[in-house]
Design a protein around this nucleic acid. Structure first.
Lengths: 339, 339
DNA sequence: CTGCGTTGGGTAAACGTTTTCCTTCGAACG
DNA sequence: CGTTCGAAGGAAAACGTTTACCCAACGCAG
């Protein structure tokens, strides 16, 4: 069972297998790639046996050089330390493995310069696909699209003028639903700490929220609307500014869970009890919330479906000729109210 | 500045650069790789200019095929959704980028079969290094070592009989320090929910803890010692069993933070206030603790140093001939008491 | 018997690099 | 002046695959 190759011994190549099976390397290649009608079942058996005996594993570099495509997919993430992103990365990676691909994880730190450098690097790696979780508009991105790189946008829509597959939730609808929840409880006043409005996701959430309130005749007080980066620290700072004056909002919609954590911390310092005195709504619902943040209402994004959907889209992108990939795939979210 | 290559146009190869610069491809390669004494400064300038003008980027597969080494490093993680591992992955990836490598993230789910499959896959990718965060003893692992794969062990020591670089903290010492902390406060009785004792890390933590108590003349009640997987769910189950009888322990040392979260949850259900009635000690200290688990005392593992140390060890492993890599690198931890 | 399609399989040409030899040209040195 | 040496750079051989092309053998219709 175990390969007989010993330490320092060179690994078996396709030539070795061919010699051992008494056929040409072309036949070995065809058998191993499952090409039909090109080998008798007897030959196939010999080849398979020889390959197993020698512990042969094809070198990806050789194949990549010939076919100009690797078994690699790159995932770009704005913040690896955000558990939400880590969970999505996990879901995607496990689905990719089923199709024989491995995942290169790239942290853009939400900076366009880093993203562009990584895009070039991944192009050099001949990756089969690039999943941009939280893309940034930049010259490098447009260049990459122009070069024909197979890019899929996750959560943040492709910038204006770029036509590429997008997978995400309906942020506007979710924001609207949060507003409706607030309205049902007749909470007033309400506030919001939204993420960077340059991001289509953050903007959609906030605008859906605000639009629904407006329709109900409620105007958000400017004092109770703040912007923040999608981090705890930034959320904490925004919360500090927002809660500098009274009256405090009765409920606040945050751009994501991390901002909500920051707000919660500030509430603790000010003696505001959550959710009794102030309800906090987040977005994403990473798995830790159920245990560590039971006070948090949030929008659950369907991680598991992300994995399968992304893997499917990538598979279609990788095919030649490229099958039509749906331009937009909207996955269902869920409003999570914890009591 | 931007590459002039248009959509569908083939990417520039080294031949194009050579032609544009009026030199041979050998010279282009040498200039781009910074080989000294092989090109006049004038030639070098021409080559560099041509490369920039054409937007040339070397294809990794070609290089990999020739040199039998890629610009890839694999990180094996037992659980991608553990924020602690995600943080370490981030630290390593960012340091690797400085040396021009990219990181393939592999989730073993703490299963030997998956680990072995991934090891073979990574060998096919000709990775420059494999970082095993939480290695499992298995035939595949020993085979990989035998094949000469450049493997580094993180947190869990290499299994008996395998000589390979190890990087981690002094788990025994940390466990001892937790015991000393408990002793200082004269907390009694004390309990423990340790991780799988097959892991050197979990075992070291628990044994250091127990040994120090024994030396102080204190024997852990069997009822108050439980084992668990390193997950919240498993910690919760172990906690449920442990807290089925009174008296409750005054302080509990948990195998990692996730187990501690599970215990905390159970305490909440039983109306045990933490840390007033029960102190909980964890291990790892992921960055979220400061915000979401202020009740948790823990051992802080130095993420940042992990990144640099691992990158350094990998660099030395990649050199030919391999420089001596320190067999064991023990990084300093910190006891974090939150009040 | 000729012509033709199908099946099985070999030959060799790529794919884009790096690196080992060579060669050439000057300069330094005896 | 002959020899040696270093710098500069070219030609070509790998590296391990896949695949286009070719060929032989065979069955079968005409």
């Amino acid at each position: 069972m175990s390969a007989p190759r010993r330490k320092g011994a060179p690994r078996a190549t396709i030539d070795d297998v061919a010699a051992a099976a008494g056929v040409s390397i072309a036949t070995v290649s065809r058998v191993l790639n499952g090409i039909e009608h090109k080998a008798s079942s007897e030959t196939r058996h010999h080849v398979l046996a020889a390959a197993a005996r020698l512990g042969y594993r094809p070198v990806h570099a050789g194949r990549a050089l010939r076919t100009m495509r690797s078994a690699l997919v790159a995932l770009f993430v704005p913040d690896t330390s955000n558990l939400f992103y880590a969970t999505i990365a996990d879901a995607i990676a496990s689905h990719l493995k089923d199709s024989g691909s491995s995942m290169i994880l790239c942290n853009t730190r939400d900076e366009a310069a880093i993203q562009d450098r990584l895009l070039e690097e991944m192009e050099s790696h001949l990756v089969n696909g690039i999943v941009l979780l939280g893309a940034l508009d930049s010259p490098g991105l447009r260049q990459a699209i122009n070069n024909g790189l197979p890019i899929i946008f996750l959560n943040r829509k492709p910038p204006a003028g770029i036509a590429a597959p997008y997978i995400g939730v309906d942020n506007r609808l979710a924001g609207r639903q949060v507003a409706e929840h607030f309205l049902e409880r007749t909470w007033s006043p309400v506030g919001a700490i939204h993420g960077p409005l340059a991001s289509s996701a953050s903007r959609g959430r906030y605008e859906g929220f605000r639009a629904r309130l407006t329709r109900a005749g409620i105007r958000l007080e400017p004092r109770l609307v703040r912007g923040a980066e999608l981090t705890i620290q930034s959320g904490y700072q925004a919360a500090t500014a927002m809660l500098a004056q009274r009256p405090y909002p009765r409920a606040v919609f945050c751009g994501n869970d991390l901002i909500a954590y920051g707000l919660h911390e500030r509430c603790g310092e000010l003696g505001i009890s959550v959710p009794e005195q102030m309800a906090i709504f987040g977005f994403d619902d990473n798995p830790l919330n159920a245990w560590l943040a039971p006070w948090l209402d949030t929008i659950r994004v369907p991680y598991d479906q992300y994995g399968a959907t992304v893997a499917g889209a990538l598979a279609r992108l990788a095919e030649t000729p490229r099958r039509r990939v749906p331009r937009e795939t909207i996955l269902p979210h869920r409003v999570v109210i914890r009591r």
